[in-house]
Design a protein around this nucleic acid. Structure first.
Lengths: 228, 228
DNA sequence: TGTACATCAGTGAACGCGCGTTCACTGATGTAC
DNA sequence: TGTACATCAGTGAACGCGCGTTCACTGATGTAC
């Protein structure tokens, strides 16, 4: 990806950058992204604060990098499922959406703070650079593949049909699938919003004390998207 | 609510508390809840920092109060719809859910930062006091009313039926409606998660640049919950 | 293989800042007789 | 109506803290001849 040969110094730089990010995630897990402190990370690594400026221009660049990595990890997991589907594996056909849903849920539960960094309350004044929105598009493309393969008319309702009319005229976001029917676009959006609805409420703790098993609720929502 | 008579001093205290909260919301709108600063609020009110400690024990108490007010405002709006329905007004019968959905959406769009304070990334280490969870229960009770009035079998799917089996045995959260059928509980949860799914992604800006109208998507999701 | 130079990681001091919170105090407002 | 006292809002100074970031500098590592 980067040059095939890599000097020892480059290798070292990259290792330290990785370690900084690792400690950053630990810190976020403890006190949230807004409390992320370069000085605290440096101390944890046994270095002095200013040393980190050899590796990151400033605090914002570190956060951007964390967000990028978070997106990347989810996108890669999605793409892996998509490839299996393409090869006729367990992600193929109508079960492709089920596989993607499982991947999404696992990714979210694996590290809730990472989930919230991407899908939670936006950081005030922060705007994602273009390469990050490109990663989001990669994910959407995999999702659209699965939706197109799932067959039409999965999301019922009169308004849903009306909404598909709107989508027929507003499909910039689905530029990777110019031939996908509006019903597939509708399905992709429902997949995205319904599953994030369950996950964000679950991870924010809004089900604790209710006695409901979020895993079963999630399953039921996936089923509602893929059956009938 | 508090004593019917109120001394001028009490009245004044309450006015100042209100003004503090008002400035706090403005500040949250500008830089997020984590950047909320008592000193900055005081300065904005033309007072010195320590003065605010006459009105709030500390920063945490102020934040708790803001969260409480946020919950309260949504719950009150829900209850108002519920009362109309009880009086046979436009919130009655199957359209009750539609009215609640509209209220929820309006409340969310009215002040996105307020929305995120309640339903966004949880504040690390913060636990809501019991009286706040009680307000959440009030809302859920109104929602369950509407779901019970909407009739059975609104959310299709095999797993959905299986999930209703789970709900039949786990209905602590619906203690206010011991006689509501599991299908009504299922509907309430779908209402909650699906609409928050659309709203949280919309308010976090994940639809910007996609060309999709979130209002129509929301409408379509509401329709999917209330028709058939 | 050895020397001269360039590159670069990391340090420690320093700058300016704003934070939450405490404390002793002043002055205005309300209360009791 | 007037005086004596208690209550309480607000001030200003101070404490300790940690933050991001800059700067001049040391010392180790790599490079060129």
């Amino acid at each position: 990806m980067t040059g095939s040969t890599q000097t020892p110094r480059e290798r070292y730089r990259q290792q330290v950058r990785e370690e900084v990010k690792e400690k950053a995630w630990q810190q976020i897990a403890g006190s949230g992204a807004s409390a992320l402190s370069l000085n605290a990370i440096a101390k944890q690594m046994g270095m002095s604060g200013p040393a980190l400026y050899r590796y990151f221009a400033n605090r914002d660049e570190l956060i951007t990098e964390l967000i990028r990595d978070a997106y990347r990890s989810l996108a890669d997991a999605f793409i892996a499922v998509g490839d299996e589907a393409g090869a006729g594996g367990r992600g193929a056909g109508r079960s492709g959406l089920v596989a993607l849903a499982q991947v999404l849920r696992r990714w979210a539960l694996e590290d809730p703070h990472r989930y919230f960094l991407v899908y939670g309350t936006p950081v005030p004044g922060y705007h994602a650079p273009q390469d990050i929105t490109a990663i989001a598009s990669e994910m959407m493309s995999v999702l659209l593949d699965a939706c197109a393969a799932a067959g039409p008319d999965r999301v019922p309702g009169a308004q849903s049909r009306a909404f598909e009319g709107h989508l027929a005229g507003h499909r910039e976001w689905a530029a990777s699938h110019p031939d996908a029917p509006p019903s597939a676009l509708r399905l992709a959006l429902a997949f995205w919003t319904r599953l994030h609805g369950v996950l964000s409420l679950e991870l924010a703790g809004h089900f604790t004390g209710m006695g409901v098993d979020p895993a079963l609720l999630f399953e039921a929502e996936v089923d509602g998207l893929t059956s009938r």
